[in-house]
């Protein structure tokens, strides 16, 4: 990948370890050992040596089996988890020259609220069921310093309409919504502050097929219209094939392969990727 391309998000050497750790943690885990648990100290190396550039308007897919570190990676990038090591740079923050992980929690909150959006697999992680649907969208706008009630109302209404939530249900509680509707409220919330970067973590898992298709259509449309760069985590290669321009493959906390999605799916290089692609129904 040419380094001259404008990046939205640059990640280098990201590492996340759960447990006390020892000097041989990184040397004795990974795909070569088929484990991410350190045999010496029992620490779990969820991610190690992860690095990539996400370009403007691009969708990067992250695939891998359960426990490969996909979700941990996005949770680290969204500051839900504290990283053990590594750096991340956002073009929209400090001209891309400031390591986000080294910022104070107050600054991280600013970055998260103003420059990022996140859609979790479980909608209830991203939205609050005892706030109304409109209130959830309003929360994201209020954290991004929009304090005009009429503007908030109008923006929430348009986003919820955009994500096919009927206007009449805007002031209902998501606790009374179906799973697919909750997921769409979550997407509306994530888009509220027009973020340059969006994280999507297994957003269609657990939804029935027709709802899945609608949610994917929505994501694709949003990307085409707003040009938002996205990091899409999924274990479903069908979702990746439909959405992602490029794809990274994770295994035991390491990135084993990254490239154009077509190339990854048609001509996988790494042994694990070959297995993954051939397992596809």
């Amino acid at each position: 990948m040419p380094a001259s391309n404008a990046f939205v998000l640059r990640v280098t050497n990201l590492a996340k370890r759960y447990g006390q750790g020892c000097p041989s943690c990184y040397a004795l885990t990974g795909p070569a050992f088929a484990t991410n648990i350190c045999p010496c100290c029992g620490s779990i190396v969820a991610c190690h040596d992860i690095g990539f550039d996400l370009e403007e308007g691009e969708i990067l897919g992250i695939v891998g089996e359960s426990g490969s570190g996909k979700s941990t990676l996005v949770r680290c990038l969204y500051f839900d988890e504290e990283v053990t090591g590594g750096e991340a740079f956002l073009a929209a923050y400090g001209k891309g020259g400031v390591n986000l992980f080294a910022e104070s929690s107050q600054r991280k909150r600013f970055i998260r609220n103003h420059l990022m959006g996140m859609v979790y697999q479980n909608p209830l992680l991203g939205i609050k069921p005892h706030f109304t649907a409109g209130g959830n969208v309003a929360e994201k706008l209020l954290t991004a310093d929009v304090y005009n009630y009429a503007d908030i109302r109008a923006r929430a209404a348009s986003l919820l309409t955009r994500t096919e939530i009927p206007r009449a249900r805007m002031d209902d509680f998501p606790a009374r919504f179906s799973g697919g509707m909750q997921q769409r409220v979550q997407i509306a919330k994530a888009l509220a502050n027009n973020p340059p970067l969006l994280f999507l973590d297994e957003i269609t898992t657990g939804l029935d097929l027709s709802v899945q298709a609608r949610v994917l259509d929505l994501v694709k449309e949003i990307q085409r219209e707003l040009g938002i760069a996205m990091l899409v985590v999924s274990h479903d290669l069908g979702v990746i094939r439909m959405l992602a321009d490029r794809t990274a493959v994770l295994k035991n906390g390491r990135m084993v392969e990254i490239g154009l999605t077509d190339q990854i799916l048609e001509d996988p290089q790494h042994q694990y990727t070959q297995l993954l692609v051939h397992s596809m129904l």
Binding site: Q106, R109, N113, T132, G135, A138, T143
Partner: peptide, 19 residues
């Protein structure tokens, strides 16, 4: 308080007005 995160108070006010 330490992160000056008062968004939930604001949403409380927003929903008050809605209701």
């Amino acid at each position: 308080h330490s992160e000056m995160d008062y968004s939930r108070m604001w949403v409380f006010l927003y929903e008050n007005i809605v209701k």
